[in-house]
Design a protein around this nucleic acid. Structure first.
Length: 424
RNA sequence: GGAGGGAUGGCUGAGUGGUCGAAAGCACUGGUCUUGAAAACCAGCGGUCCGAGAGGGCCCUAGGGUUCGAAUCCCUAUCCCUCCGCCA
C-alpha cells in the first residue's frame, strides 16, 4: 500500500507516476473522499472530546457525592450523535481503504516505459546457446522418451497442468533443489527457512496478493474460515516480519526457502499448455531480504547476482531484462527477470524474477525497524526473488544438456547430488 | 475431542467501572561521577491519526455488546499454555 500522506499531498503527481504502470489513479474520486473524510473525522473527534470531557465531569461529581441526574440528562443524545458520526466516518474510511489498497506501487525512475513484455529492456546476456548437430527436442519429448516425465498420469490423478516425475528425473529435480538451497545458504549468506504451505488472509494482504488477486489462489476451506495455498514462498517468508519491530543489528534479514507453489492460472488458459512451463503446482527456491530503506537498491543488485549464480554454475545461457512499467507487478518498484535459453522453444523464457517492493509491502505488514538515528520505528524495505524456479530449471537442464540419443547429461554442479552420475 | 488458564508498551509485568495511555523492572537515550569503561545516581523514553501550532482523537489480541463513562463487565473469534484422549 502507498503512503496515504504522500498520495494526499500530491495526488496529481502520484497519478502521473502510476501511468507508467498503466494504472489510472482516480484523482477526483480520491480527493472528494479525502475531503469528506477530513470533515467527518474532525466532527467525530470533536464529539468524542465532548463525551470524554462530560463523562469525566460525571465521574468527579459522583465522587464528590453530588447529584448526577442533571448531568446525565445533558449527555442523553450525545451517544446517538456520536454513533451516527462514527458510522458515517467508517463508511468513508472503508471506501478510501478500498480505493488505496487497489493502487499499485510506484515504479522506480529506472523502470523503462512500456506496455508489455515486448518493451522489457535487456541489460545483459551470459553464456552462448549451444549449437546442436541434431534437431534438439523439447523437454516434453525427452521426458516421454524416457518415460520419466508423465503428464497423462498427472491428469488422471488430478487434472491438467500437473506433472508426474519418476526415477532419475525425479531425483534430478530433487538435486536441483538441494543444489540451489546449498548455494544460497553456504555462498550467499541466506538462512534456510521452512514455512507453512498454507497461509491466512492477513498474510496475503500483507504481501499484496489480496484483495486484488484472489482469483489466482487456491482456497482451502477450514472450519468457517479459509486458508490459501501459497502462490510463492514470498508470502509466508516475508510475513515473518509482519507486526514486528526488527532490531537494527539484525538487519539485513536474508531468508531462503524451498516450497511448492500453487497457482490457479486463472486467465491464462491456452497459454503454455505444453509441458511444465506453467503448472498449477511447482517447486521454487525463494530468496527474501528484509533491509533498511537506504540499502534496498543495493540489495536488489545483489539478489539478481545470487539468482544468476545458479545458472552460471549450471552453465545455462540466460539474459537479464528490466521489466517495463506495463509488465511490472503490483507491489514492485523495480523488477529484473532472468530468462533462460530453451533450445526446444528456441527462445529465452522467464526462470527468475527479482523485485524491490520498497516500503509498499512493509506498510501493510507493519514491518518496521528502530532507526538508531531517529530512535523511531520506521518501515523496512522488502525484496524477493526466485533463486530459482525449480521446474523451469529442470526443463532448461533437460533441453540444454540433451544428447542425440535423447539422454540428459548431468551438469557438473549437480553430479555430487546425483550419486556421481554423469548422464541419465 | 474433553477440562482449565492466559493475551497489556521494544521486552517482563501490575492494574477488575471514572483523573489509566496505563505502575514497576529491564532495554534504550542524555547527564553526573571516572584517565576510560563498568557500577551507582539524576533525567528522558509507546504507537498512530488530524492539525501550521496550540491542542485533540484512536490504540491494553480482534470483532460485537452493556454503560454517561470499559484495559477492567458480557458475547463471539483467533492465538498461546497446562492436563486427559487420539495420533504421523
Amino acid at each position: 500500500m502507498l503512503d496515504a500522506k504522500i498520495v494526499r499531498a500530491n495526488p496529481e503527481e502520484v497519478a502521473q507516476l502510476l501511468k507508467k504502470k498503466g494504472f489510472e489513479f482516480p484523482v477526483d474520486q480520491f480527493v472528494e473522499l479525502e475531503n469528506q473524510r477530513k470533515q467527518l473525522q474532525v466532527d467525530t473527534e470533536t464529539l468524542q472530546n465532548e463525551r470524554n470531557t462530560r463523562s469525566k465531569g460525571i465521574g468527579k461529581a459522583k465522587a464528590a457525592g453530588e447529584d448526577i441526574q442533571p448531568l446525565l440528562a445533558e449527555v442523553a443524545d450525545l451517544g446517538n450523535k456520536l454513533d451516527a458520526a462514527k458510522a458515517e466516518l467508517n463508511t468513508i474510511q472503508d471506501n478510501l481503504e478500498d480505493l488505496l489498497s487497489g493502487v499499485p506501487n510506484i515504479p522506480s525512475d529506472e523502470v523503462p516505459e512500456g506496455a508489455d513484455e515486448e518493451d522489457n529492456v535487456e541489460i545483459r546476456r551470459w553464456g552462448t546457446p549451444r549449437n546442436f548437430d541434431f534437431e534438439p527436442q523439447d523437454h516434453v519429448a525427452l521426458g516421454e522418451a524416457s518415460g520419466e516425465l508423465d503428464f497423462e498420469t498427472a491428469s488422471k490423478l488430478t487434472g491438467s497442468r500437473f506433472s508426474v516425475m519418476t526415477g532419475k528425473l525425479a531425483r534430478l529435480h530433487r538435486a536441483l533443489i538441494q543444489f540451489m538451497l546449498d548455494t544460497q545458504t553456504e555462498e550467499h549468506g541466506y538462512t534456510e527457512t521452512y514455512v507453512p504451505y498454507m497461509v491466512n488472509e492477513d498474510s496475503l494482504r500483507g504481501t499484496g496478493q489480496l484483495p486484488k488477486f484472489g482469483e489466482d489462489l487456491f482456497k482451502v476451506p477450514f472450519g468457517d474460515r479459509q486458508y490459501y495455498l501459497i502462490p510463492t514462498a514470498e508470502v509466508p517468508v516475508t510475513n515473518i516480519v509482519r507486526d514486528e519491530i526488527v532490531d537494527a543489528a539484525q538487519l539485513p534479514l536474508k531468508y531462503t526457502a524451498h516450497t511448492p507453489c500453487f497457482r490457479s492460472e486463472a486467465g491464462s488458459s491456452g497459454r503454455d499448455t505444453r509441458g511444465m512451463i506453467r503448472q498449477h503446482q511447482f517447486e521454487k527456491v525463494e530468496m527474501v531480504q528484509i533491509v533498511e530503506p537506504s540499502k534496498s537498491w543495493d540489495a536488489l543488485e545483489e539478489m539478481i547476482r545470487h539468482a544468476e549464480a545458479i545458472l552460471q554454475k549450471l552453465n545455462l545461457p540466460y539474459r537479464v531484462v528490466t521489466l517495463c512499467g506495463g509488465d511490472l507487478g503490483f507491489s514492485s518498484a523495480k523488477t529484473y527477470d532472468i530468462e533462460v535459453w530453451l533450445p526446444g522453444q528456441d527462445k529465452y523464457r522467464e526462470i527468475s524474477s527479482v523485485s524491490n517492493m520498497t516500503d509498499f509491502q512493509a506498510r501493510r505488514l507493519k514491518a518496521r525497524w528502530r532507526n538508531p538515528e531517529t530512535g523511531k520505528p520506521e518501515l523496512l524495505h522488502t525484496l524477493n526473488g526466485s533463486g530459482l524456479a525449480v521446474g523451469r530449471t529442470l526443463l532448461a537442464v533437460m533441453e540444454n544438456y540433451q544428447t542425440a540419443e535423447g539422454k540428459i547429461q548431468v551438469p557438473e554442479a549437480l553430479q555430487p547430488y546425483m550419486g556421481g552420475k554423469t548422464e541419465i
